[in-house]
Amino acid sequence: MISAVQFRNFKALRSAAVKLGPFNLVIGPNGSGKTSLIQALLRLRSLAGLPAAHRHEEPPPNAAGPELVFHFNPPYQNLHVTLACDTNDFVCNLLVVDHPPGLDGERQWAGLRARLLTIRAFLFDHYAMALPARREDGAQLASNAGNLAAVLAARREKFPAAFALLEEEFRRLVPEFAGLDFRPTPSGQIELVARTAANGGELLAADSLSQGTLYLLAILTLAHDPEPPAIVCLEEADRGVHPRMLREVRDALYRLSYPQDCGEAARAPVQVIATTHSPYLLDLLREHPEEVVLANKQGNAASFERLSDRADLVELLCEASLGDLWYSGILGGVPGE
């Protein structure tokens, strides 16, 4: 959906640009702009909810302030959105839309705006996921997945087929469990429980599940969302997951980005922007270097680079795995020492 973003004076992204595809795994050292990229998208979502300024009515820009320019894929390729700040501020608080003139342009912006408002970003927290949640909070997954119990309970009620598919995947990935269930707590909330495959189907509360099990369940909850957002940002996609299970994490995220590849051609693709520090997860994208974004930091300035732009990558991969190449430093995207 978003084809590219240009950054000026936005945190460490002083003068940078990044092209985005359907699936993007962003790697790089701390402070290299990975989270800033996601924050830029969240800022876009926030400002898209407010009345937009149009190019002809935009106030004089603050040349020293931050500016973000977003470009889009078809059918929104003729629209450009700029986030800027007015002359008295250094925070992006102004959204300027360039769209074709007339009613058709207005309609295009309305369509794009509706999609932008669904952008979601997640950094899962297993402590939060293990807690009971209020049943009425189950509309959409919170950024830390703290309402996982409520979301899954609501899904089982409203989308039983989607829930059944998720549960089937959960059983496959964590075969010690036979399924998921929910029970009310004395405080009126709802608690997630997992039914064991052995021991007569013993019920284990979420706070007794392993961290990795909760993280996998949260990722499956995203991947099997029957009403997914247009863009999903997931920080530390590998968090808490055994290296051998990272293939499943990748596949779950691919399910969002490439629905036609898993028999869901009717669903609109979700653009995924995931970050990781795991060389093992990176290894799984060896065949698709165009899906990897390297975030680099030079001094206080950060920049982005597509791994597929590296001309000698094929030759390098004959000698070492992608994860090892990254760790070695020859690809960039490593801390300065």
Partner: peptide, 19 residues
């Protein structure tokens, strides 16, 4: 290419593990 071979076998370059 390796990617073409995947396509010929799985009908996609990104098959799920069970498939």
């Amino acid at each position: 290419s390796r990617r073409e071979l995947k396509w010929r076998v799985y009908g996609t370059e990104r098959p799920s593990l069970p498939f």
